[in-house]
Design a protein around this nucleic acid. Structure first.
Lengths: 214, 214, 214, 214
DNA sequence: CGTTAAACGAGACGGTACGTCAAGTCTTTTC
DNA sequence: GAAAAGACTTGACGTACCGTCTCGTTTAACG
């Protein structure tokens, strides 16, 4: 895929051990889940994986590169193909993606890994760009595209910026997750969608007036 | 108050050195500004402040407690008294607070300190609550209160939840800051306010259709 | 005692607190006895004595000066007046002093204090001289004097050096004590005296051939 | 020997760096010589040796274990094979060993190391036993053996205890060294031997009556 | 089907910073 | 004005990990 040459040259064989790669991924997932990223050491990952420290440093530049690799590998199935349907009902079309995002962030398997990356990108701008592109942009852009086609207007009547509308949907979710302000359940997503693009019939019509806070 | 002995006993004097406290705050602000939180060591703070390491550990449990202390101390002047005016023009009332928030986050003096705390609260839930209460809630609650009194409705006509409306305003700002997706300038704030509560006349009428992204 | 002036001048009153001096002495004796000199801290002495740290530093330059002070104070009764009797029986005259020395070194109340000084004088020559003069020389010189008057001869017939004879008596005791090679009981002292200056009748005539070692 | 597998398994390689071991020994010898044991820090040894602190702690439990190791390593050539000749002249046979001991203690290269150990064994009985066994016992036992075969008697005529006779020879040397009472030169050793086992012809017939003190 | 070079496990290495401890000094208040 | 209390600066402690660097030992393509 990276070359048109029909794999004749195998001189620079990839001798890399798949067993080791897998063991390191698994050890990382486990340890970060158990103790949190910042308490996990490269030595601990190596020990848990039954692997030499050098084997880790040979293939990853840092602890957080491993975590990012795990996240991306686990996520790779979705990529590229993400497009929202256009059923005519914007709320109904958008809602599942947002529920998906909320679920993804909340899933205990991902939560700690994502928080680790969130912490790291505060200090590493390149990493921030990478995380953004690999993990968040596909969904974000798909929503932007669907909203663009809906031709919304702002409360004052001018044409709405789909980018900003999307931020109104995604921002609050990230905000709640980041600060652990309040639950990210389906009711909340429904209410949020209703506030931004208007409600469509949902299975469980939410009865609310105020969302509970923290 | 703790004793009936009308304050005769002053034995439990506060022997703490104000000079040391100040020097540590200043050294922390400077060093975090120069090198970023994660590269700053407690030893370096002590050295820069001309203070013994033990004096730091006597009063703060960790590097990040110092940073939080600096942030709160620097911020303490503002909050408590924070109430939004009600001029009848919601957008006009809300806009300055949001600009203030955006400015606060963007100010280089605060940015690195805040990112440090953002990283830390990923691992420390108690700290997260503290940061939320001390640094963010006053502004957030003030906005909620002002919006509550405006009696907005959702696009589908039901009464809006002021909490969620506020999240639509604050969430995107935090989101942009967190991921460094795009600038947090006044134009953006204006557009955002327009999308959420409708525009009122602004000094520099924004000319836009799409906000630029990253 | 340090001045001939009959205590008339009391204007520069000795404001030093006798209570504190005593308490520090006692605390030092106790703590060194309990934990050994090297584990005792000045802070611990101050705390146990119910005294401020500065009060200690005001009157003693170091931890080991306190210990030496305690040893000398406890020992001060003997000084100066020590002369051995001359009963004609050299062994009988010398034996009690050596038993006294051995007992003094072995007494648990003194042992740890003396070992502390022994450790310190390895690094502090002045201290070594002081310890020697204050604690050991009186007995040593008294023995030298008694032996001098006995007019011993060496095995090869020349007149013996009383200094060296005394070292043959004291040296082995110090050696055993220093290296904890073997017990310093009365049997041993008797045997030692017998080997150096010949036996006289003792209460318990020792039956031995070899002393047990360590 | 531990396995029947004729040494096929060499997995438990000795990975220890000889370079580091040597550098640490040398640095310790130098620093203790320059500044005295108690002023030398483990950090200083590590720095001088160009070695990480952990490398020291990996192999030695404490500063004084290094010093002991240096002393034993430097000394290891001598002992084991140590037996005194029996020329018939006891004084002549014993004298060289005692001169050797005195020289060893006095040699500036050893003096500070030995004083450091002397200080430490006051607090550590196990260490005392080790020092005794590794550094002093070989010579001591060799002298005991030689004296045993000589069949001496005490001044009062009973058979002498070779152990005690040896203590009469070694004790005064240690005593003088410990308290720095007087020089440990060859004249003194000759006189001492003369007093204990009688003189034999020596190269420089000592002219003395009293040894000078301190 | 052996040769050979890479990747591997193990873990010691030179370092940096940690958080603790005690030393000796300085400051404030009490008696 | 000495004493108690205790905060201060200093500096070494012993530990934990870092990322690099040998060591033998697999292991799999090549010859």
């Amino acid at each position: 895929m990276f070359s048109g040459m029909s794999e004749q040259r195998t001189a620079d064989v990839n001798r890399r051990s798949e067993r080791a790669r897998r063991a390191i991924h698994d050890a990382t997932r486990e340890l970060v889940g158990e103790q949190g990223f910042s308490k996990v050491t490269v030595e601990a990952i190596a020990a848990r994986a039954g692997v030499g420290k050098q084997t880790i440093y040979r293939w990853w530049p840092s602890k957080c590169a491993i975590v990012l690799d795990v996240l991306i590998t686990d996520n790779v199935s979705d990529h590229g193909s993400l497009t929202l349907p256009d059923s005519g009902d914007l709320a109904a079309d958008v809602r599942p993606v947002l529920v998906g995002v909320a679920t993804y962030f909340t899933d205990p398997a991902n939560d700690k890994l994502l928080r680790a990356m969130t912490a790291e990108i505060q200090y590493d701008t390149d990493l921030a760009a990478l995380v953004l592109d690999e993990l968040l942009r596909p969904q974000f852009d798909a929503i932007v595209a669907r909203i663009d086609s809906a031709g919304l207007t702002t409360p004052s009547g001018s044409p709405a910026d789909p980018q900003i509308i999307t931020e109104q949907l995604v921002g609050p979710i990230v905000h709640r997750w980041l600060l652990r302000r309040a639950p990210l359940d389906e009711d909340y997503i429904n209410a949020l969608v209703d506030h931004v693009v208007g409600a469509s019939a949902t299975k469980r019509p939410a009865r609310r007036r105020r969302t509970s806070e923290r």
